[in-house]
Lab assay of single mutants.
Amino acid sequence: MTSCHIAEEHIQKVAIFGGTHGNELTGVFLVKHWLENGAEIQRTGLEVKPFITNPRAVKKCTRYIDCDLNRIFDLENLGKKMSEDLPYEVRRAQEINHLFGPKDSEDSYDIIFDLHNTTSNMGCTLILEDSRNNFLIQMFHYIKTSLAPLPCYVYLIEHPSLKYATTRSIAKYPVGIEVGPQPQGVLRADILDQMRKMIKHALDFIHHFNEGKEFPPCAIEVYKIIEKVDYPRDENGEIAAIIHPNLQDQDWKPLHPGDPMFLTLDGKTIPLGGDCTVYPVFVNEAAYYEKKEAFAKTTKLTLNAKSIRCCLH
């Protein structure tokens, strides 16, 4: 018999989150649709729960009410004593943790798909938090293969000092899905179709896995975050240069030392320094102006996964 890495157990509980950011409308629209008619997301033997994560922000069509829901799922915020004085999103995070967690427990949901849009030209993107997770690498390989020839990129946010504390991190297997470009507060049919297909293929993978299909060893190309880059700023902290036209919409493309990065209003080009080629992502993302992030630098690498098969009882 072929030796293989056996994944822990079959997958039982899956959640699909929309509206973690209330103005990213593809996930909101799909989740609302699936709450009314969820036939397309159901798979035999699998509990799939669509869920609106930040209903107040969705109602106002804004990213958040008090603070970013997708950055506060750490033990400090989840452990705060519940009171009306807490920011709305912290209270909501505790409610979500109660419903789908608790985080880092045996009772937490197996998989959470968190649906997002970006204003950046990132196409279909899967966000991975753990480079050693054979199950998710296999799932992402399946999704990428199923979507081809449509490109699907994998963004690895594993980093020693950049801690995200994402909404989906309460699950055993957290999956971020990011599709763009799409303006905030807008629905685009092409973007919706791409996100819908990503979810379909992900659920198909889980179904095949649960039925005992063995997935042979595989490898995927990923883009691992190195650092986030702020806009150049003046002495008052105001933005002093904008994304250069040569960099705009060039997510995932190589940016070499000396290539144009920013452009000042008086026409001066600010190039990339250093001696390493990087791959920019979230270029000129609207939501990241407040976070002082013009783009993120990534490096390209390959992740390998062992063969996996479900432990059938």
Rank of each mutant, 00 (worst) to 15 (best):
K13M: 04
N134M: 13
T299G: 08
I206N: 00
L126A: 03
T264F: 06
F100P: 06
H33N: 08
A219Q: 07
G185I: 02
A39F: 11
D190H: 06
F262P: 00
I308Y: 03
K32I: 03
N284D: 02
G101C: 06
L203S: 00
E36Q: 10
I225A: 10
E285P: 03
H21L: 04
T166V: 09
A241F: 00
K306P: 14
N133Y: 04
G273I: 12
D104S: 15
A219I: 06
I41N: 03
Y142A: 04
G123E: 03
R91G: 13
T302K: 09
F135A: 00
F282W: 11
H313T: 14
K213Q: 13
W34P: 01
K297C: 15
D190F: 02
P50A: 14
Q182A: 11
F209P: 00
Y164G: 15
R196M: 01
I191Q: 07
I239W: 03
R71D: 14
I112R: 03
H201V: 11
E221N: 06
E211I: 09
K172P: 09
V90M: 12
Y231D: 03
K80Q: 14
F209K: 00
P181C: 02
Y64L: 15
G38A: 15
Y289N: 13
F140H: 04
G176I: 11
C218M: 04
H256N: 13
Y288E: 11
G19A: 04
A7M: 13
K213V: 07
I11G: 03
H98N: 12
K163L: 13
A165I: 13
L247V: 08
F282T: 05
F100R: 05
H10R: 14
P216T: 07
I225S: 14
D85C: 15
H10M: 14
P151Y: 04
I270D: 02
T298F: 03
L187A: 14
T119M: 01
I16K: 00
D104N: 09
L86I: 13
H256M: 10
Y153T: 07
K268P: 03
I191F: 04
H10K: 09
T166L: 08
A171N: 03
F113W: 02
D249T: 02
T298G: 07
P254D: 06
H5P: 11
A305K: 00
P181Y: 03
S169M: 07
D130M: 00
